[in-house]
Design a binder for these strands. Structure first.
Length: 149
DNA sequence: GCCAACGTTGGC
DNA sequence: GCCAACGTTGGC
């Protein structure tokens, strides 16, 4: 799951109550569907810093809720307001995510260095999805070879 | 700041 | 339903 550190960084997550955050603001249907249809409580997540000096995996988190309607879609003052969403028919959903562990940053450049990870969605040219599934084999490779706490 | 990629919008 | 125009993302 990508976050711009200027928005919410790994350190912000670490300082939140229960080190948990509602993953609000996703306004892409594919990313929404991953949260709504695929994610389950206790699923593990890589917390990825994007749009910053050194993009990369900054920590490990876990899903700590099932998907529920994103409150910001109903808030006309929010930049995430969606006039087409209604309480009866919400359009945007998100899960809550909780920090497991901050790690030594695994930079995007480092991820690209490993052919075993070449298939990762996050590494594909032009990928803009803020939430992408991680293949279990790739997950294990990163845990076994790249994660330093 | 550039630009590739790609999602969304809206006229037809 | 097509598709051009436009907007956004995000690495570089």
């Amino acid at each position: 799951m990508k976050s711009e550190p200027g928005d919410i960084s790994i350190d912000d997550l670490a300082s939140l109550p229960n080190q948990a955050v509602a993953w609000y603001g996703v306004r892409n249907y594919q990313a929404r569907n991953f949260m709504r249809d695929q994610m389950q409580i206790n699923d593990s997540v890589f917390f990825y810093h994007s749009s910053c000096a050194v993009p990369g995996i900054a920590g490990i988190a876990r899903v700590c809720s099932t998907a529920y309607p994103d409150a910001t879609q109903f808030d006309s003052k929010s930049k995430y307001f969606d006039p087409k969403a209604t309480q009866e028919n919400p359009r945007w959903f998100h899960v809550d995510v909780q920090l497991v562990q901050k790690i030594e940053l695994i930079s995007l450049a480092e991820l690209r260095r490993h052919p075993q990870l070449a298939g990762m969605r996050i590494l594909q040219r032009g990928n803009r999805l803020s939430i992408t599934p991680v293949d279990p084999v790739e997950w294990k490779f990163i845990l076994d070879h790249l994660v330093r706490s």
